[in-house]
Computed example of a mutant assay.
Amino acid sequence: MSVTPLAHVPTTHPSPAFRGRIGQDARSGHYAVPRRYRLHLTVACADGLRIAVVHSLLGLDDVCPVTYLDPIPDCPDGGHSALRPLYEASAHRYTGAAVAPVLSDDWSGRIVSTHATDITRDLARHFGSGRPALHPCGAESETEAVERMCRGIGQAAQHAGSAGGDATERAGHLEQLLDSLGSLERWLVGREYLIRDHVTAADVELWVALVQLDTVHRHHLDAAAVQRIADHPNLWAYARRLAAHPAFGTHLDLDGIARRHHARCRGLEAAGAAVQILDWAAHAARAH
């Protein structure tokens, strides 16, 4: 597999600065009270998109307001100036970047959590009553397996399109990616959703991973690799169906994803940039 050399700006995923939980630690005082908490998100990043979809699936507009941030951070360190007061109020002499996503406590003016998985689970557990269970009882191991697979898809795609390493290593990562996609392709035969007969957190994870694969990672792959990725009709039909769901499609900020990607990556794109797998805009438009 040949890849056009890129001057790639590595992305880092630092450990979350805050990992408070709603309703799980009485000492924290973070009780499950409607309209007490607020989300600060940019849906152009994977974590923000996951949280926004879960928030909509749970119908939490009146329970937990959302402040949407620009896709591109406005601080040199990669943080958002709008979040700096929250970070400084939450940690003495905080010197790190004020990054999203953030779940804040409007009562105290401080941050509860910056850990995306904890945030979505707490929202579903404490404010999701009366809705289809995003984390069905007995499906914990299945959901975690999908989460691990989706992380693997993102990592394999990133390494397959990396400017570093040799062609053999990149080809190996591409095969890992295709193996995972092939497993999902076979699993989805005759299924509308991944693990239950309704949308669950597993579907949110996979859909966001597929969005990232087509709108971000393919820009660093050659055309032949993208064609092989696209050759999974069940998988991409699944992604297309979910894009037409209001809770998914309305949060698909294609322009923001493109702006964020180009702000973080420098240099020439690979040939795969021209091979779009799905017309996301056309399918997501049905959600409005």
Rank of each mutant, 00 (worst) to 15 (best):
V54S: 05
G48M: 13
L69H: 05
V63T: 11
L60T: 01
L49H: 15
L58T: 03
I72T: 06
V53E: 09
D70W: 00
T67M: 06
A52N: 10
D62C: 02
C75D: 11
D61R: 12
A52S: 12
Y68C: 02
L60Q: 02
V66W: 09
L57V: 09
H55S: 09
D47P: 11
I51G: 07
C75K: 12
C64T: 14
A52T: 01
V54K: 00
L57M: 06
L60K: 02
D61A: 14
L49I: 02
Y68T: 08
D70E: 13
I51V: 04
D77G: 02
P71C: 07
G59F: 05
S56T: 05
H55W: 15
S56V: 06
L58Q: 07
Y68E: 10
A44P: 08
V63L: 13
V53D: 08
L58R: 02
L69D: 05
D74T: 12
P73E: 12
I72V: 15
P71E: 05
A46F: 03
V63Y: 02
D62F: 01
C64M: 15
I72A: 02
A46I: 06
L49C: 15
S56C: 08
L60V: 07
R50C: 13
P73A: 08
P73D: 10
T67K: 09
C64I: 15
D47R: 10
S56L: 10
G59M: 00
I72F: 03
P71R: 07
C45I: 05
P76D: 07
P71T: 03
P73M: 13
D47Y: 14
G59K: 01
L60F: 04
L69I: 01
C64P: 09
R50T: 09
L60G: 02
A44F: 13
D61G: 01
D61I: 04
V63M: 09
L58K: 05
P76C: 01
G48R: 11
I51F: 04
V63P: 00
P76I: 08
Y68G: 00
D77K: 03
C64E: 10
C64F: 11
C64A: 15
L69M: 08
A44M: 13
D62Q: 10
V53F: 06
P71Y: 04
G48N: 13
L49W: 09
D70N: 08
L49A: 13
P76M: 07
R50H: 12
H55I: 11
P73F: 11
I51S: 04
S56D: 12
A46N: 14
G48T: 08
I72Q: 06
H55F: 12
V54D: 05
T67E: 14
D47Q: 14
C75H: 06
V43S: 14
C75V: 12
G48H: 06
V43C: 14
L60I: 03
